[in-house]
Amino acid sequence: MKDSRFFRRLVVTAILAWMALFAFGPNLLVLLASFGRASGTTFVEPGFSLHNYLRLLEPAYGRIMLSSLWLAGGVTLICLVCGYPFAAILARTRAPWRNALLLLVVIPFWTNSLVRTYAMIAILNANGIVNRLLLAMGLIDAPLPMMYSSGAVLAGLVYALLPFMVLPLYAALERLDQRYVEAARDLGATPARTFARVIVPLTMPGIVSGCMLVFLPALGMFYVPDVLGGAKGMLLGNFIRDQFLTSRNWPFGSAASVAMTLVMGLMLLLYWKSNVRLSRREWI
């Protein structure tokens, strides 16, 4: 008994220490740095000013923020539209096939996502699989320039993040009691209206968490725009990295980072609210 209690304390302490040291501490440093000033010698000159945040609102940077949000929003929407039917099919499939389909979703995780992003080049470039296929079919005369465009970045992000949408949606749809669907049909709702009025509201927690799991990384995954988007178009993730590694303006990079965290926090709050509203349904 005593041993196990000691062990439990040890584990909890270790985890707390880990979190404090590697999650809470660094984030606090970033927050503090965001209020400071850039300095040539010490990276950050401590202080308190909102200067960095105000700079974020300058048109040049605002545009980066907006285009990043725009892109991430597009990625999220595409993932949702593609992921929802897939998750719905997954949730309806019987046991052996369901596991096979789930495996298909999970298999990409076994390969490093940077490697997978490079693999996208082989698919998208002028001499890539897509172009060769289209040429062979006679649909085009010259290779389409797909690489180094925002379209390529979009495709890369969707490819990398789709599983993060499918899995929570699958969990929500699998948990959805079919009797609600039957009740709606019984009361005269067509399949389409059943979907809109019953299935979507009842799987909202899955939709929200899937969207968050896609939207947030889509803002921050800087290597996908790097590899597939080339030098064109700066996104928030790249911007933050550049502030730290290239411009050596740590406070400004920190401010951008904190701004991104705030966006995440806001979305988490939204998610939590929708969760609280619907979590009580176990009662019925």
Partner: peptide, 20 residues
């Protein structure tokens, strides 16, 4: 004929009231 086109209604064992 799908359920929505039949003039019958069901009271389910677990009621299946829409929680939202």
């Amino acid at each position: 004929l799908p359920p929505e086109q039949r003039e019958v209604n069901t009271v389910f064992q677990s009621y299946a009231l829409f929680p939202h």
